[in-house]
């Protein structure tokens, strides 16, 4: 295993950003929305600094509520605000929200179809602190709750668009939040996020990568490398895990020889599982490699280290695409 530096990003930041990026896209998008709409409010649970809600809080302090180190309270407060006509963005770490505050997201928010937009920060292996902080099952958990829209955005461009779409669409959302320096991968002038729609970002015939979240950026790089190795590779980005775009996945799968799914999440009950469930229930059986995390709590370490350890790095994905091998 190649040597990778131990230095991690700032708490919950995507580490080692090469190329263009934006700082605090969630907070910036929320601030912009709040300028346009007086019903936008923000809630956190002692993670204001580490969820990037700062730009909004600084300009609209009266609309910002810090519940303290109390995720249940934060979600109850967000639900209460929503029930008197606000659109409440509740932002803290994904691990704390989806484990501790689940009942409140399910009943106080989703069951009432309350306008609560939960921003789950530091998703998957982004967090260096190990099992306590790594939300590796958050998508599975939130997809299992009725009436929740679940989104894992690719980059800063998409995250901003998702925040706006969530504010404009009634109901409860769970959105994976990326903070700090967030890479810009998608082309702002042409990319349009739509709730429940997958987007084909690259065409190809041999292999199709289906990916979600920031793994899509890596999927694009892997596809490029695969092309250099003579393997034609398509990429389908699935930002919305629920509702799932069954039609787009079926169409995409029909045009390639085999599939590789890639996610910063448990291999089970996330994107890969959804793809299999969706295709199989239509009678479509395609050879498939599921890249994601194993059914265990994971160790501490920098994002780059962990991704290499667990086979989520560019080399491992490229090998899966080119050689059809992924042994982690």
């Amino acid at each position: 295993m190649a040597d990778v530096p131990s230095r991690t990003g700032g708490m919950g930041e995507v580490a080692d950003v090469a190329g263009p990026y934006e700082v605090a896209p969630f907070g910036e998008a929320l601030r912009q929305l709040a300028r346009e709409r007086s019903d936008i409010v923000g809630v956190t649970a002692d993670m204001g600094r580490y969820s990037d809600i700062g730009p909004f809080k600084d300009e609209f302090p009266e609309r910002f509520f810090n519940a303290g180190m109390a995720e249940q309270s934060a979600i109850m407060i967000a639900a209460g605000l929503a029930k008197v006509g606000k659109v409440a963005f509740a932002a803290t770490y994904a691990a704390f929200l989806t484990r501790r505050a689940l009942d409140f997201m399910a009943i106080a928010c989703a069951h009432s179809m309350a306008d609560v937009k939960v921003m789950g920060g530091s998703p998957g292996l982004v967090n260096p602190y190990g099992g306590t902080h790594q939300a590796i099952e958050d998508l599975a958990v939130m997809c299992s709750i009725p009436d929740v829209t679940v989104i894992d955005p690719c980059d800063a461009v998409e995250l901003r668009q998702v925040v706006r779409a969530a504010a404009e669409t009634p109901g409860t959302f769970y959105i994976r939040n990326l903070r700090g320096k967030v890479p810009v991968v998608l082309d702002e002038s042409s990319y349009r996020f739509e709730i429940g729609k997958a987007k084909q970002l690259r065409s190809g015939t041999d292999v199709g990568i289906i990916s979600t979240g920031f793994m899509t950026a890596r999927a694009m790089q892997a596809a490029e490398r695969a092309a250099d190795a003579g393997v034609s590779c398509a990429v389908l980005h699935v930002p919305t895990l629920k509702p799932f775009d069954d039609d787009a996945v079926a169409e995409f799968a029909a045009d390639v020889g085999r599939l590789v799914t890639v996610e910063n999440h448990l291999r089970s009950r996330g994107l890969g599982s959804s793809v299999i469930e969706s295709l199989y229930s239509r009678g479509q059986v395609v050879p498939l490699i599921r890249i994601g995390l194993g059914d265990r709590f994971h160790v501490c370490g920098s994002q780059a280290y962990l991704e290499q350890l667990y086979g989520l790095d560019l080399d491992a994905i490229t090998t899966a695409v080119v050689k059809g091998q992924w042994d982690f």
Binding site: I77, A79, G80
Partner: peptide, 10 residues
């Protein structure tokens, strides 16, 4: 009570 807090704030 927590939702009451949120409503009261709003």
């Amino acid at each position: 009570l927590g939702q009451g807090v949120g409503m009261a704030l709003g």
